[in-house]
Design a protein around this nucleic acid. Structure first.
Lengths: 222, 222
DNA sequence: CTCGGGGTGATTGTATACAATCCAATCGCG
DNA sequence: CGCGATTGGATTGTATACAATCACCCCGAG
């Protein structure tokens, strides 16, 4: 399937995206080894661009590379979940406050997302659900008009998405998620920053606790 | 400490550190091109490990790589300074709150830093001053007991350090910096999180404004 | 003088090839 | 039988070599 291909734009770029997606969706689980020869063959390239892609992801914090011992998908312990959510709350609160200052109205797109989400939930398509969830929070971040904040949040979300895919194998998504989203979008649109932050706080707490619960139930990995 | 290791440990690792340091200290200024052949020769390696190092730094947000057009040190506009400080305040406030919860006492090391800083100021050694400033804030972050927060703050600090070196060529460091540090450390040690945050807020505002002022004065670059 | 149109040198992108290192299983010795 | 040395295979690290792409300059037509 490595298409005949001279058409490829730039190997490295598509490689980074492909690898990142594979890690985020759990195709390569936290802690698993990333053997260069195998990956190179799987993506149809030599090891040179592949190694560069790994370095890129190392910089993003998705993989850990030990000299002469190779790369592994960065492991995730329960404490990481707590720490990540703590951090994420601070970042996203800032995003909300900045967005509310300008009365950013993203209720429209939120509604669209909800429709798509309902469909995905009916179809039990977890990856799609996660993706739509991410879209909402990414949209929220974007309205902050602070690219550095967007980047930082994107990094945190990557980590969290990894946890979700690692532990949410069964569909057991917190039900009120999309209600929370609407409430937050509504508050932001009215400039009610603190109300939005309050709702976000409970929103994230529930999400975090759901993950931690699943983690303890299915937490049979070392 | 660094094991005896006389011979070269691993090219890539020392390369990344060396390159990062060169960028942070302004040896390669924001916006300047990073030609692979030149850097490879300068560091005495081939282009392969060098390219990997660049990818790593791209992941950290220090360089930007355009396909077939090479890498440049990520440019920094005035708005970046504002955005970075906005973000940094949120992150460091979180660090302070977590540190204050445990009454972390870093007044001892802060005092040591101040002594070293006074010496550096007398010697007009700006890079050393920046470094000691970073040490204080890094120490503060470390007491949060949240590695992800430490990493995020480290990334922000890298960006800010780049701005400092780019615009603070002349020694004009805000005078009250080390008083602020002592006040913050003192408040944290007494568990007075909000007092520490308040002092941090003015501390960062002054630092930011000093940079912006210099930026406007010396801002003759495109 | 301005605007395309090549052509050329400089620079990046990737594959192949080989050296260095690590890991595990085996062997030898007590 | 236990345990450290050793060796072989697997895997990573780097250099050399070459292909692909781009930027710049020069030139000629309008």
């Amino acid at each position: 399937m490595t298409a005949s291909v001279p058409r490829l734009e730039l190997r490295s770029e598509t490689l980074v995206d492909g690898l990142r997606e594979s890690i985020l969706t759990g195709r390569y689980a936290p802690g698993s080894r990333l053997v260069q020869d195998d990956l190179a063959e799987a993506f149809g390239v030599s090891r040179i661009p592949l190694r560069e892609a790994l370095r890129r992801l190392e910089g993003e914090g998705l993989v850990v590379i030990s000299p002469n011992r190779g790369a592994v998908v960065r492991p995730l312990a329960p404490k990481d979940v707590v720490d990540l959510y703590d951090l994420r709350l601070a970042l996203e609160s800032l995003a909300i406050r900045r967005a509310a200052e300008r009365f950013a109205d993203l209720r429209g797109s939120t509604k669209v997302l909800r429709v798509q989400a309902d469909r995905a939930i009916a179809a039990r398509a977890m990856p799609t659900i996660f993706s739509l969830d991410r879209d909402f929070h990414a949209g929220l971040a974007a309205t902050s008009d602070n690219p550095h904040l967007v980047a930082a949040l994107g990094g945190q979300w990557s980590q969290i998405m990894r946890v979700m895919h690692a532990y949410f194998q069964v569909a057991n998504y917190p039900a009120a998620v999309w209600d929370d989203h609407e409430a937050i979008a509504d508050a932001v649109a009215h400039g009610a920053a603190e109300a939005a932050v309050a709702r976000l706080t409970t929103h994230l707490s529930e999400s975090r606790d759901a993950i931690l619960a699943h983690l303890r139930t299915n937490g049979d990995r070392s």
